[in-house]
Design a protein around this nucleic acid. Structure first.
Lengths: 274, 274
DNA sequence: AAACCGAATTTGTCTGACAATAGGACAACA
DNA sequence: TGTTGTCCTATTGTCAGACAAATTCGGTTT
């Protein structure tokens, strides 16, 4: 341990309180916004309720109004409250924003990754389907260029994970749905590490990326042709391959769309409640 | 149109300046944060870059430092930048949060609703599938109770839209995936208005909710039995019905999973690029 | 009862100042 | 030479006080 402390500028760090990695004291505004958020979550402040005035809050917390305003700004950005000049600040009835934090949760990082991959698996097929229906020429151009970068990366044995990510984002953009696009962007970012891993190794070891790339190309062709159904199938193929390469076991049935109709595995035991 | 504005509680709405839906002048800090966000999105400010100092920004935009600080607080909350005391504010390399804002965008409210419904359609089937696999007894209890509330609402001809929403949220929770759960919660909230509409009318006119309710029950049964495939089908049935009742035309092919295998509509014209 | 007026309240913005931190320049020292 | 300690400056964090703009509410007038 003991990498150079990012904090240790002054020599007088007295009896070093066993530096816990990065234990900077929270900003005042962060403490305040955290406290308010907790009170809202706990139901202490219910939707529609008015918050105390900034002046009052300042006195209660023992900080200046500037700190309160910054905390309130944070909660506003999170969509938890809204303010009306001359009237006050109110807990919003139904938040108009969603804020997904990565690794802010309690679970392990691996669990988070699994959850995120699961969410991605949910949308990826439909994204491809919509992309096939709505892609513009410039969308196709973008996807093709990322594809090309990946080709070159494979040839040179360098990292093409970024282009990989970009390819999927470009596909999402082709859906012409801003929410989908933003979501996929977010999801993709958190695979960059895993992706980078699979892109490492000598060119001869790049079997993974090569397989992945052929899946990409099939997917691109389907989208390019505007064949929505094929695009969905190709996307699910790719997803299945990716999960395999990453060693993630998916609960979702990605084979549903392949020609295996009427599977109907009879009645499952209804006892499988964990 | 012209339902009573949710805002019109006060009688003294003066000579109503032809209220343009919601054209309040943006707060200064909102304009500033919007401009900065645009510059980041446009790549004018790249990840890792340092923003101009608050003082400079204040001079450039012609506002006080307080406004700048509020704008920066907003971007911090959105995860786009981070600040270091004594050093400056920096565009973050890979945001660990996503922030989906409803109706903060440019498009019309109807377009936004369509986009959101589309996203919901993407996940709903998979959500049901996962829920069927992972539901606990308490999950089932919750879903059943919301179902019951809706039954009573139909019987009494009152609004059951909230229970409707809660049912879907409870199902999402059963996936045991926090991201999915949060996302569905967000998506569901923005149908409350549309839902409320379909719940209005005399009991005899509640054909919509009644049909919806029977779909709910089928969905619940499948999840309760743990039949993932059936749950998915039921969810898609319900989704199709909802889209119909709402008058939304979906581009996604929700019929894919019903027993109509090998549809393969031959080659589509690849010219359908808008 | 309805419409108008005005004071009080509350958030939005401005100004100026100081504290805390970061980073570089520079001299002192081994 | 290379390292260390110190100072200075730039920048964000916090404080305090003031005014502007919007809302709310009571009272007054019509």
């Amino acid at each position: 341990m003991s990498a150079p402390l990012p904090n240790a500028a002054e020599p007088g760090v007295p009896p070093g309180p066993e530096i816990s990695r990065i234990a900077r004291p929270l900003r005042l505004s962060e403490e305040v916004s955290g406290e308010l958020q907790r009170r809202i979550a706990r139901g202490d402040l219910k939707p529609g309720d008015r918050l105390p005035t900034e002046k009052t809050l300042g006195e209660v917390f023992g900080v200046s109004r500037a700190v309160i305003r910054e905390a309130v700004a944070r909660l506003k950005a999170d969509g938890l409250i809204e303010t009306r000049q001359g009237s006050g600040a109110f807990v919003v009835e139904a938040p108009k924003t969603i804020n997904l934090h990565f690794w802010k949760g309690a679970g392990s990082e691996l669990d988070e990754l699994r959850d995120i991959f699961e969410l991605r698996a949910m949308v990826e097929g439909s994204v491809a389907e919509l992309a096939a229906q709505r892609r513009t020429r410039s969308d196709l151009r973008a996807m093709a260029s990322h594809l090309k970068v990946m080709d070159e990366a494979i040839g040179n044995g360098v990292d093409g994970s970024e282009a990989d990510d970009n390819f999927h984002i470009a596909m999402a953009r082709a859906t012409n749905n801003a929410y989908v696009s933003r979501l996929v962007e977010f999801l993709g970012r958190h695979f960059s590490d895993s992706r980078r891993l699979s892109w490492q190794g000598t060119p001869s070891e790049l079997a993974g990326p090569q397989k992945s790339q052929s899946e990409h190309r099939a997917l691109f062709d389907a989208i390019s042709l505007g064949d929505a159904e094929a695009a969905r199938r190709r996307a699910l193929d790719h997803l299945r391959g990716t999960a395999e390469r990453l060693g993630i076991k998916l609960a979702l049935d990605l084979d549903r769309d392949t020609p295996t109709p009427l599977k109907k595995p009879s009645a499952r035991l209804p006892r499988r409640i964990r």
